[in-house]
Amino acid sequence: MIAFDTGSHRFNLRAAAVIFHDEYVLLHQVEGDDFWYLPGGRVEPGEHAAQTVIREIQEEVGASIHVEKTLCIAENFFSHNGQPYHEIGLYFIARLEAGSPLLDLTVSHHGSEGSKRLTFSWVARQRLSEIEVRPVFLRQLLQVDRVAIAHVIQRDPHFDISY
Rank of each mutant, 00 (worst) to 15 (best):
H9E: 10
I2Y: 01
G99I: 04
V107W: 01
P84C: 03
H151N: 12
G41F: 13
R10W: 08
S112L: 00
L26D: 08
E130L: 04
Y85P: 00
Y37T: 02
V61Q: 05
L96T: 00
A74E: 10
R146E: 15
G46C: 05
K116D: 14
N76P: 01
Q154R: 00
E97Y: 06
E130S: 12
N81C: 02
E97R: 00
S162W: 10
F20V: 02
G114T: 02
I131A: 00
H109S: 04
W36I: 06
H158R: 00
G111H: 10
E44F: 08
Y37K: 00
Q29E: 12
R117N: 11
Y85F: 15
G7Q: 05
L90V: 12
P39Q: 09
R139M: 05
Q126I: 02
H48W: 05
T119K: 08
I19Y: 10
L96P: 01
K69N: 13
G41I: 01
G62E: 11
Q29N: 15
D34T: 08
H151T: 07
H109F: 10
E56M: 13
Q29D: 07
T70G: 04
E75N: 14
S64E: 14
V144Y: 04
S129T: 13
L102A: 01
R55Q: 07
R42T: 15
G99A: 07
N76Y: 15
E47Q: 15
V147I: 03
L102C: 00
A94I: 06
G46H: 07
Q143F: 06
L141T: 04
A3Q: 10
R42S: 11
S115F: 14
F20R: 14
A50G: 09
Q126A: 08
R127L: 12
H9Q: 07
Y91Q: 01
Q29Y: 03
H86P: 00
R14G: 08
R42K: 15
S64Y: 06
F77S: 02
L96E: 09
H48C: 14
R125W: 02
F120S: 06
R55Y: 02
D104P: 03
N12C: 13
L27Y: 11
R155V: 14
I57A: 01
K69V: 01
A3I: 10
R146K: 05
S108R: 11
I153Y: 05
F120W: 01
G40H: 08
N12D: 15
D145T: 10
V107I: 13
I88T: 15
G40A: 05
T52G: 08
V147A: 14
S115V: 12
V107A: 03
D33I: 01
F11S: 02
S115Y: 08
A50K: 13
D34Q: 06
